[in-house]
Design a protein around this nucleic acid. Structure first.
Length: 221
DNA sequence: GCGACAG
DNA sequence: ATCTTGTCGC
């Protein structure tokens, strides 16, 4: 499946249209997550080598359990809606070096809140056959009403008449984040987990750990 | 038709 | 995504 990775936007869109039907977002988490992993990719100012990281944290304590990184040449240009084709290769390379099996992945970006309902979190969850959802820092698609000022306040992200995610306030009076289910987890579950993984910062500890790890890996390369 | 557009 | 100084506030 990863051996026939798309090389052009046209091929990528076709693959998304094909795989989107396999996504399961009505499914609550099968078991309570013990290992939660954040995944992220860092890019160089110039050049084609990118670094990816998978940071596994204990869901209860949020302590880092294990971190794996990898570098790889990025073959796909950035195109809104096709982010997965740019990041998944190096993320799978990093995942291959991991010894523990995460119970759920927290991706940097969107899940079903996507033009074709198949964002990075859907694709990554499908390829790993593991629950996954996305937490994005900026808006992409959809509209939403105002979000309350307190941590935990949230409102639906709507697109094309359907709820595709939640806009969640993770810290009082701080810009909210966008949470959307990816695969094998429902919207409420993704939202709850996103909040549980967030403490004193705007973003989940999982994505923060992955972010730091891939940046360090990029610099080291 | 003209913008907007995860990272 | 990435470059980039100082600065305001807890």
């Amino acid at each position: 499946m990863i051996e026939n990775w798309p090389r052009t936007p046209g091929e990528a869109v076709d693959l998304q249209e094909t795989l989107r039907h396999q996504v399961r977002t009505e499914t609550p988490l099968t078991r309570q997550p013990r290992f939660v992993a954040g995944v992220d990719v860092a890019y160089p100012i110039a050049g084609q080598t990118v670094a990816g990281a998978v940071a596994v944290l204990d869901a209860a304590t949020l302590n880092v359990v294990e971190i794996a990184t990898a570098t790889a040449p990025t073959a796909f240009e950035y195109v809104p809606g096709l982010l997965a084709f740019r990041e998944i290769p190096v993320l799978l390379a990093a995942l291959a070096k991991l010894s523990v099996r995460p119970d759920v992945f927290v991706c940097d970006g969107y899940g079903v809140a996507h033009p074709r309902r198949f964002g990075l979190a859907c694709h990554f969850g499908l390829l790993t056959d593991t629950p996954a959802f996305g937490v994005a820092k900026t808006s992409f698609i959809g509209t939403h009403g105002p979000v309350g000022p307190e941590r935990g306040d949230h409102t639906d992200l709507v697109d094309g008449g359907e709820i595709v995610g939640s806009v969640v306030r993770t810290r009082r009076n701080v810009k909210p984040v966008y949470v959307s289910a990816g695969h094998l987890i429902d919207q409420a579950g993704a939202r709850d987990l996103a909040l549980r993984l967030t403490r004193e910062f705007r973003l989940p500890e999982t994505t923060r750990a992955a972010d730091h790890a891939c940046r360090a890996a990029l610099k080291a390369d």
